[in-house]
Design a protein around this nucleic acid. Structure first.
Length: 288
DNA sequence: CGCATTTGACCCGCGC
DNA sequence: GCGCGGGTCAAATGCG
């Protein structure tokens, strides 16, 4: 099985390092989808998988900037939490500032029915009749020992929940920037505890901070952020009218002298509206 | 003192 | 109609 060597090959350099080959990307993802492959994926919104486009330079680390993001519109079922979230989000969401970025994002998503629903829900609660903007999501799979990877932004944890079918809890983070409505979910793969799945939701309406905490493992995580920005500006994926503050400097974070034991590779996954893991896997890939 | 994290409770939509 | 699962809030606590 040499030719079909596992996409992920533990590197001898640290045990947490993985060798990666072009084709491996797909395989890696395949394996992951195998982990979450729940089945039930129709070829709805076909999504491609991000392949390692980064130069071999970062290969050792395994940073894969390219990422996919999925329009939630394709999924017929609106996330239950979404509506609920919607109702609450406005609660204290300063549409003023976020409106800048959020609005641009919202323009790409169909506010229609889901919004209607949300509105309906919001209506019930009254005083919350504000339309909520659904932000695109980006999921990344990173092989790391730590859950919360530094990505150049400051996050505040606002919740943690146990995930069904997974011994690992899911953590919810929110950008500390009051004007930023970006959220992040972090959870570990139940199948492979060494893999951390990070899902970003929304776009930062500000630049990264200067790593106040000494951003150690910032390299890959930063790539995620960069990739996120890239994806947003990628015409073929999405073309938000308002460009977000890109951080070119993050695109090649290899300069970071990464800490001893951290992620070694990151895969970009499309996160669908339906959920995290189960949906992260592209239906197309699932079908394979 | 301010900020971040932790943890339990609550809310909501969906599926059965 | 009920139960389940997901997501968020808010009070309490700890740390720098």
């Amino acid at each position: 099985m040499e030719e079909e060597r596992p996409a992920l090959e533990p590197d001898a350099s640290g045990g947490s390092s993985w060798a990666f080959s072009g084709d491996g990307a797909a395989a890696a993802i395949a394996s992951l989808e195998d982990l979450y492959g729940g089945g039930g994926g129709d070829g709805e919104g076909e999504i491609g998988w991000g392949l390692p486009l980064g130069p071999p330079g970062v290969g050792e680390e395994g940073v894969f900037p390219p990422l996919l993001e999925v329009p939630e519109s394709s999924s017929g079922s609106a996330p239950a939490a979404a509506a609920a979230k919607a109702a609450r989000e406005e609660r204290s969401d300063p549409p003023a500032a976020s409106g800048d970025a959020a609005s641009s994002v919202s323009s790409e998503e169909p506010p229609p029915e889901s919004d209607e629903k949300a509105a309906d829900t919001a209506n019930k609660t009254s005083k919350k009749g504000i339309k909520r903007t659904r932000q695109p999501r980006f999921a990344f799979m990173t092989k790391s020992e730590i859950d919360h990877l530094e990505d150049g932004y400051r996050w505040r944890k606002y919740g943690q929940k146990a995930v069904k079918n997974s011994p690992f809890p899911r953590s919810y983070y929110r950008c500390t920037n009051s004007k930023c409505t970006v959220k992040k979910r972090v959870e570990r793969s139940s199948e492979d505890p060494t893999i951390v799945i990070t899902t970003y939701e929304g776009q930062h309406c500000h630049h990264t901070v200067s790593y106040p905490r000494g951003g150690s493992h910032l390299h890959t995580a930063a790539a995620l952020a960069a990739a996120q920005q890239l994806a947003l500006s990628a015409p073929q994926l999405y073309a938000p009218p308002s460009p977000f503050p890109q951080s070119p400097s993050l695109i090649h974070p290899q300069q970071e002298q990464r800490p001893p034991s951290l992620l070694d590779r990151t895969l970009a996954l499309p996160a669908v509206d339906e959920g995290l893991l189960g949906d992260i896997v592209s239906p197309a890939t699932r079908n394979r």
